[in-house]
Design a protein around this nucleic acid. Structure first.
Lengths: 338, 338
DNA sequence: TACCCTACCGCAATCGATTGCGTGAAGAAT
DNA sequence: ATTCTTCACGCAATCGATTGCGGTAGGGTA
């Protein structure tokens, strides 16, 4: 059906090896100019499209990069992925995006199949703080970069938001509005973002001089509105010690917090201010519009892709460096003076 | 580095051919049971992972399906993609998702590279009403299914929402609230959804008995809030003939319409009711929450994937059939009695 | 004229798995 | 005891492109 290198070579009256060299830009100098022209013409006439599978088998490189994401329907990730794709495509690399559903076994399976397809490298947005898969990848020295989520052990280069200072900015914002009782709905303990945001929250309230007992922390079992709602409901059930502000582990949790505030017959921001994290799309349109920390998602993806490219090409050596992009506060209607 | 079939065969004391047959479930009966056990044991011990590239080269099948999407950051698409992936993964197929940015040339390029990688089939959510790429795919009889967007010519099987009746339901809803002047902000003319929704809108208002001159149509240049805002601003600039309801081409356009209503010093739904289409995530949380037609996105993706699998396996023949999933109205706060 | 050098191209191995064919041995049937 | 069948396995070609090596022809130099 499709024409092969052999067809082109025959049409041009040369051997396949010669045709290959003529077609490939960086071996073309090995072939006489006139021959190159003949081969190129034959290739064009036959609509020759090299078979990447065969090429990959021989060269052991596939020009594909595996991208592991917890869940594409979480709108945090598509912008990151677009950033990755944008950078990769400049070098003819293609991103293969797969969903792990936060399931480490599924992630391992997906990794295996990608590896069997000779992926040149990996960008992983689905890491847990302790993650066998990441350890294995690091141990085998497979080119890979973490994005957004980190492991506790520094094993691979990573790109994420500067969560620590982001949290401080958020808490300071609430404090500047006069809030003295700020609660935190923390994300999952086994995910770096959940952990570091919680620790940063603790640090921030202590630095400000707020009392720890006025600033309770409740855990959400996952980064979702329903988990956020459940946790916030628990938090608000004790009407004695009701906080005047809630710092949510991320925007999805913040959505659940808004629901819980509503369900408790309270309102945001009049009774309780709410701050989210990430600034995912449409947060400017929800009711009330959400004050949140903006993560430069696309740039995070781009930076990760740049690093991976450098690792793959071998141009630049990379240890397990931590790259952090600054987060910016977006003040909207969900926060108000106490 | 990684162990190959040859290693396994050596370890088991058999020829590679025999090892291959032993490893492969449907050729295993050609090998003695004891030998199978030895090979399996050797494979396990060596952590043998077959090289899919080599396999694909030989079998001419890659177990990959290309999925062409306009833009993953448009939250209409991730749920469709998840539906596709879910069905495909049951058969060991993997979806390769790529963004075309509504650029038909980019789509063609992406298609070529996927085809060079021996993709077994394609699911395309980025079709235009006239689309050279789709024509070529149909002509070359490459397994492919359209999703969400159709071409004017019926060339490939397709799965989409039942737009026609969906629009009628939406318009009838507005009419039942007493609206007699309903405007439509249509999506792009060169995309099937934009076209059919506009035609269905015309049909619906006529069926209801509304006057065409009271029901103006304005085109949005693309499916985005900014294009919707621009179009709605134009519509509302004529304060004489202001509609009491606007049926937006999709939810993103509806967001722009809400902005324009706000910018005109009007409010929704008091002055103008708004209806969207697709019911993308978070529409229940925007202000006001959006009445919209719910498209069963995941099921649309699943259905498309099922059809593609049948085509690839050759089990069932498929012509250019049109499959339509019912759309359901979700009534929220953006529509009210006139 | 003899020799060398260079440019160009063909040759064939290679990547790793699959698969139809051929062969040998064991067992069954006559 | 001989022939036939069946089962298990080895053999080698194959998929399509890449690449180092070797050979040849042409032109230049001594």
């Amino acid at each position: 059906m499709a024409s092969t290198l052999k067809d082109v070579a025959q049409a041009a009256g040369v051997h396949t090896g010669t045709a290959s060299k003529a077609l490939n830009a960086d071996t073309r100098h090995l072939v006489a100019e006139a021959t190159v022209k003949r081969v190129l013409a034959a290739a064009k006439k036959l609509h020759y499209q090299p078979n990447d599978i065969a090429r990959s088998l021989r060269t052991r490189r596939s020009q594909m990069v595996g991208v592991l994401v917890p869940d594409l329907t979480n709108s945090l990730f598509p912008p990151i992925v677009r950033g990755i794709e944008h950078v990769l495509s400049d070098s003819g690399l293609q991103a293969i995006v797969l969903n792990t559903d936060n399931n480490i076994e599924k992630a391992s399976e997906l990794f295996s199949t990608l590896w069997a397809r000779q992926c040149d490298g990996f960008i992983i947005a689905s890491a847990f703080r302790e993650d066998k898969l990441i350890e294995e990848i690091a141990e085998r020295e497979i080119p890979a970069v973490l994005v957004n989520r980190l492991t506790d052990k520094r094993l691979l280069p990573s790109v994420s938001g500067d969560e620590w200072s982001g949290v401080h900015i958020a808490v300071n914002h609430l404090a500047s509005l006069g809030h003295k009782s700020i609660a935190h709905i923390a994300g999952p303990k086994n995910i770096s973002t959940g952990n570091i945001r919680r620790l940063a929250f603790l640090d921030a309230i202590l630095k400000i001089g707020l009392k720890k007992e006025n600033c309770p922390i409740v855990f959400a079992s996952e980064y979702s509105d329903s988990a956020g709602r459940f946790a916030a409901k628990k938090l608000l059930s004790n009407s004695k010690a009701r906080p005047t502000a809630i710092f949510a582990g991320n925007d999805q949790i913040a959505m659940g917090v808004l629901d819980a505030i509503d369900a408790a017959g309270l309102s945001c921001p009049e009774d309780i201010s709410v701050v989210g994290f990430n600034n995912i799309p449409l947060m400017e349109r929800v009711n009330p519009s959400l004050t949140t920390m903006h993560l430069p998602k696309r740039r995070v993806g781009e930076a990760a892709a740049v690093i991976l490219k450098e690792i793959i090409s071998g141009e630049v050596m990379h240890g397990p460096e931590v790259h952090m992009m600054p987060c910016e506060i977006i003040i909207r209607d969900s926060t108000a003076k106490v």
